[in-house]
Design a protein around this nucleic acid. Structure first.
Lengths: 209, 209, 209, 209
DNA sequence: AATGAATGAGACTTCATTCAT
DNA sequence: CATGAATGAAGTCTCATTCAT
């Protein structure tokens, strides 16, 4: 991943020793994703999580130190999954603009299945600003790296900066907000094509095609 | 601004009948912007607001029915101010792409002075989804209308859709997040120029200028 | 009224000096009867009273020292009105049992028009125990005196005690509760006749008639 | 007791699952009876209850959803206990008027030990009208049934209606108020005898005995 | 006298976290 | 490991009462 920041060490939850423990841990994480996705961090409650997970309230603390802790783990988890989703969409040998389009398509698809990601990452801004910041910095860095690669390949302008990466990320995030979260009736490919057309030749009239 | 939706009537909090009352109300709103901006909706407290405002706890309820109520009023307020900021930046006679650039510049400037707007509008997504949605729908509609106007003037492509508007809005919002909120050391004009270059001819090599 | 306890001095509300003041005072008392009748003492509020009365909140304290004060005045008022209601029903020259029946009829009629009296006097038990006690002691004393008078006239047994008076009062109050407050579809005369038949000859079979 | 309404299922508070839990629940109920008995529903406080019970404030909510909820449970409880008190006093084989006297004696005895029942049931009129109404309707229905039974046995008049039952209940309640709550120096038997003499042959002179 | 803003104590309720079993 | 009762700090909101105009 090139100059990507140091690989984030997974937040050290207490590691379960038994198989049964591992199952409970996973159930708690999934339940937390549901709970926080539906109600948000503050409205969501530990007891809501344990009820969804079907375990006793006290058991929560066998696996997590606090409400914040599980939330951080969740943000980390989702952030990693979004990244890996994009990565696997880029496995083939794509030209730069095709790559961006593929990444966006993958992201939109993922977002439709995991609408809670918006809520959870948004709330991370308050609950765990470091995670929030890191998520976007990392994502932007990945995009930026791809842009530089494209420039090296001679297909993209070579004055593309971090700001360009943030601009592209912003487009993607908001298209996801509008067309994956707020409504989800348009094909993700169409949305990704629109973003791509902007990247290809802007919005001016001269842009033939 | 053309087909912009009817100006929303302000949420009717209890109207003060004396001058003193009007002063207190304003102090509370400003204090709330600070409090929620720093701590977010849930961590922020009414007593935090009244302390900042220098009034007694109970006085809050002379003007607002609840914590939600003042938050809604705040979102409404900020949303309106962002809009009016953009509008006044567009007063002159600008060509379409210049207009977008001017709007972004104005927005970034405003955001640097009112960093809290990000947290507040973000949280509106959960606290008052209607306001949140309306804020972005309205903003996107304004952009979309400008795009269509540009097309009518023959300067922009005429296949520009709502999705294009959302994409542009996303760019703007994320550039603001990065260069107005997370760090604010670069001139806003430079940032706006970058966005503009994307809108002019995309990021591809061919787009010489 | 014979040996009735010392005539209760009216609770000294602040006496208004002007005509306008007297009107406001009366409006407040009437409003309080409504407010407390509908919501009870604790749920009722001063601001509810002043709103009903159409005066400013602060004006309340021009006429009453406290929420308790107006409530006491109200209890006193109602208690006096019930008494006077009974008294005027007894103006004619009635035989003892007829007198009791007439008193009950008058009471039931009054209660139907002033259902709030139950609520208000009941709550006096907590808010102003002295008033509560005095209301019932006074009422019982009046009944007791009538019973003794009846005995002196040779029409009633002469072993009738305070307890008999309380028993009769209890009958009356509960018949009022059932047939004036909880439902009010039966003629008050019928109810009073039933009470009377008990007083005349009990409920045993032997009681010919 | 004949046509008495179906025994009401107890309001389902959260059932404790451990022995310790059951103890705490009982302590809270007893404490609530004290607290509400002394101060009434509105002046009584949850913290007053938990202090009397010797548990933390928050523990209250382990067992009850709200202040209202525990109050309802209490009314239900007391109402049931009064009923069962009367029932067991009637176990023997008594003639109708003896039965009424026994029931009253039992009630007065219970009331002397549980003076709070008056305040609590009185307040139920506002806090939980349904319970209040049901308590008296049920009690009256029980009395009425006994009267009809007495009539069938040829010992009582057979024109005894619901109103007669309410009249008798009223006598009983007010004798309890006067001689169990307001003062308690007279033997309950004497009081019950007085009520009985009224039921036997009224208060008129002719009723020799 | 009247007005209505201001005050602040106090109540209920929630819930993350701890603890005994 | 699991359970669920217990804890108590903290927060929102109400409202009687006071005060400045």
């Amino acid at each position: 991943m090139g100059t990507a920041p140091a690989p984030d060490s997974p937040p050290t939850g207490k590691q379960p020793r038994t198989e049964r423990g591992r199952r409970t841990l996973r159930r708690l994480l999934d339940a937390a994703a549901e709970e926080f996705g539906e109600k948000g961090f503050h409205e969501g409650s530990i007891s809501g999580i344990t009820q969804r997970a079907g375990v006793a309230l006290g058991s929560f603390y066998t696996y997590f130190d606090s409400k914040d802790a599980i939330f951080r783990e969740l943000v980390h988890d989702l952030s990693a999954r979004v990244g890996s989703e994009a990565r696997s969409a880029l496995s083939g040998d794509l030209r730069p603009l095709e790559a961006e389009q593929a990444a966006l398509t993958a992201f939109l698809t993922f977002a439709r299945d995991h609408k809670e990601i918006y809520r959870i990452i948004d709330e991370a801004e308050f609950v765990d600003p470091a995670s929030f910041r890191q998520h976007y910095e990392t994502t932007a860095a990945r995009i930026h790296e791809r842009l530089r690669q494209g420039a090296r390949e001679g297909e993209l302008r070579d004055d593309l900066t971090e700001a360009h990466a943030w601009a592209i990320m912003g487009m993607n995030v908001f298209l996801g907000l509008k067309y994956a979260v707020l409504s989800d009736d348009k094909p993700v490919e169409d949305i990704a094509a629109i973003a791509n057309s902007i990247l290809q030749h802007g919005i001016g009239k001269t842009g033939t095609e």
